[in-house]
């Protein structure tokens, strides 16, 4: 289990996460949804050590991650597919994927994983010699995902993979996520596309303004109530306290 306990994190003087606690059971896909500025991306970055934490802890199977450096995370089995893809624009598709297997043990399995990623995303094989900066948004997202998978992560953190993409591409990407889940990869999916995320998720967290305001099994979620909480509509405020203690 990837466990986040009482985590407080932010950017210097600006605190973003206010003592959040979340559990991500192994083998499950957990969706984190919520409006802009809820702290979803900051949470993923804090888990990876990209944002300094001031309180609380993160652990994987009881093993503390809080004080580990970001560059250690790949070896510990975590991969982040960041918001906005962050592909290496001046490098080819294949070089981008090679970078995904940088730590020595992963480098040894480079060829096998390259084939696996090309199998998942045939488009990337076609474009392997092309510069990543010249890819379309959907292809860049696939490249970012492929790069994340090159280290054979146990836990995959994905930040808004559907952002700005055509529905047909979004469906393709969600199909890949479903396949990864079936292979036993633990997935934490930050997503604004609530319906699609709920269709795939085992557990759901709703965040708003740096706090977790709902934690439920995906099957039990009442979508209308979720939307009321999401948009902080009148009458939903009373439910917040209940939801937190569920």
């Amino acid at each position: 289990m990837l466990k986040v306990e009482n985590l407080r994190a932010g950017y210097g003087a600006i605190n973003v996460l206010w003592d959040v606690s979340l559990n991500f059971p192994l083998g499950e896909l957990t969706a984190i949804i919520g409006p802009n500025g809820a702290g979803k991306s900051t949470l993923l970055k804090a888990v990876m050590g990209l944002v300094p934490t001031t309180q609380g802890s993160v652990s994987l199977d009881g093993y503390p991650l809080t004080d580990r450096a970001t560059w250690d995370m790949a070896s510990l089995g975590l991969a982040l597919i960041p918001e906005g893809r962050m592909v290496f624009r001046d490098m080819t598709v294949e070089e981008n994927l090679t970078m995904g297997a940088f730590p020595k043990p992963h480098r040894a399995a480079l060829g096998r994983n390259l084939e696996r990623v090309f199998g998942l995303f045939p488009k990337l094989r076609e474009r392997r010699r092309q510069l990543a900066g010249s890819l379309s948004g959907g292809e860049a997202q696939m490249l970012a995902m492929g790069r994340g998978l090159m280290s054979e992560p146990r836990v995959l953190l994905i930040d808004e993979p559907s952002l700005g993409l055509a529905p047909v591409i979004v469906r393709e990407i969600f199909d890949i996520l479903r396949g990864l889940k079936q292979q036993g990869v633990t997935i934490v999916l930050v997503e604004q596309n609530t319906r699609m995320a709920l269709g795939l998720a085992d557990g759901v967290y709703l965040m708003r303004a740096g706090r977790v305001i709902l934690a439920e099994r995906a099957a039990a979620v009442d979508i209308d109530r979720l939307h009321d909480l999401y948009f902080a509509r009148e009458g939903a405020a009373g439910d917040v306290a209940d939801a937190v203690f569920k």
Binding site: W71, F88, R89, D90, R107, M150
Partner: peptide, 24 residues
Amino acid sequence: SHYGIALRAMHDSEDATRVVGVNS
């Protein structure tokens, strides 16, 4: 070398490079 590729990647995004396991 693969260090050279990593250094080139760092120009684009140091965060993304650290995430994939480079001690930048």
